[in-house]
Design a protein around this nucleic acid. Structure first.
Lengths: 186, 186
DNA sequence: GTAAGTCAACCGGCCGGACGGTATAGCGGA
DNA sequence: TCCGCTATACCGTCCGGCCGGTTGACTTAC
């Protein structure tokens, strides 16, 4: 199920994410998470006093991972106009094809948390707000950066719900189209 | 809760959608749907033999409404290159601001159905596939039309999960940026 | 050095409640 | 009378949460 050795807390979180990914939100029960993490239900409840606490833990971890990952994408882009938007494109299209581990994790945590209580997504909302703030002063035409973010979010949603999946060729074409929006303010 | 007079079947579907919108997916129980539809649980089960049947009914209705609405948006656009993409923009941005009734309904049905069984979304997937097929032969630069669809889907997702909400001014800016992608193949 | 005490970590069984689904009886119009 | 529709009562299951108890490592006391 999940690597032993690592501390129980992260083993539980890993197991919970894996369950949602593999068997869906309804399958995420405290018993199942405990079992897959290799501990008893009581043991799980020692670390997370309620299901909500477990979900809060999942979200905190995800929000931090997303923020770190995104910041890394930004700093790896050359400075200048449209830096944040370029980072977002690189981030989204880099994650869309391969293991896209973070993408899958995000989808699972999103759905599980939202199902229990939409307010649990607040940490993620904060991350998105930060991204939007950075995009707003990116030096691009107003709206262009936000349009790029919407597009990457749309790709993410199509992935979450499995509505459609673009081939690599299609992805490249979409990216090429979005690159057009990167030209600085006219 | 829901208008009387109309036949029970649609009253039940309306009530189910309203419950999810108002109180979330977990609140959608057969009892609650029956009560809000002004009917007993047994009565509901006469019309929908199981919860899955109820969700299937919701999805069928939604898929048809979406297809009809989208086709209407297409035919109301002048013919020519990029017609489908223009329709999609008009559709999404027309629905993003006001009552956006269909948008809210879609969100509710999406979440409820996906939670029960992701395969239930197949009718919706068919609608999306039709849209993508229409976009692919829209006469635009390859990828531009799909990029527009991704952007509108992103707007939809931000709405579903309440991740962020654009002001009308921001929406107008985003649309202006996306309009740039409408220029015919270079 | 060892006995006593302490504390975090964990176990596993139990309970109350809710939900999906079934069974069966009742009602009103054609 | 028959049939479409509705109401009521009930069952089995499952899940979240709780609780008493256990282990083992580490400190302290003598």
């Amino acid at each position: 199920m999940v690597d032993s050795q690592t501390d129980s807390r992260t083993r539980i979180l890993d197991a919970a994410e894996a369950i949602v990914q593999a068997r869906g939100v309804p399958a995420l029960t405290l018993e199942a998470a405990a079992r897959d993490a290799g501990i008893s239900k009581g043991g799980l409840l020692y670390h997370f006093a309620s299901k909500e606490a477990l979900l809060t833990g999942l979200l905190g971890r995800l929000a931090e991972a997303m923020a770190v990952d995104f910041d890394k994408a930004v700093t790896s882009q050359p400075e200048g106009s449209g830096r944040t938007a370029r980072a977002m494109l690189a981030w989204a299209f880099g994650a869309a094809v391969p293991g896209c581990e973070l993408q899958d994790r995000a989808a699972a945590v999103f759905l599980a948390a939202f199902h229990h209580d939409p307010a649990l997504l607040d940490p993620i909302r904060a991350v998105f707000a930060r991204m939007r703030a950075a995009l707003a002063q990116d030096g691009l035409r107003p709206g262009a950066a936000q349009a790029i973010m919407c597009a990457t979010d749309g790709l993410f949603m199509s992935h979450v719900f499995g509505l459609y999946r673009l081939t690599e060729a299609e992805l490249a074409e979409v990216r090429e189209a979005l690159d057009m929006l990167l030209e600085p303010a006219r």
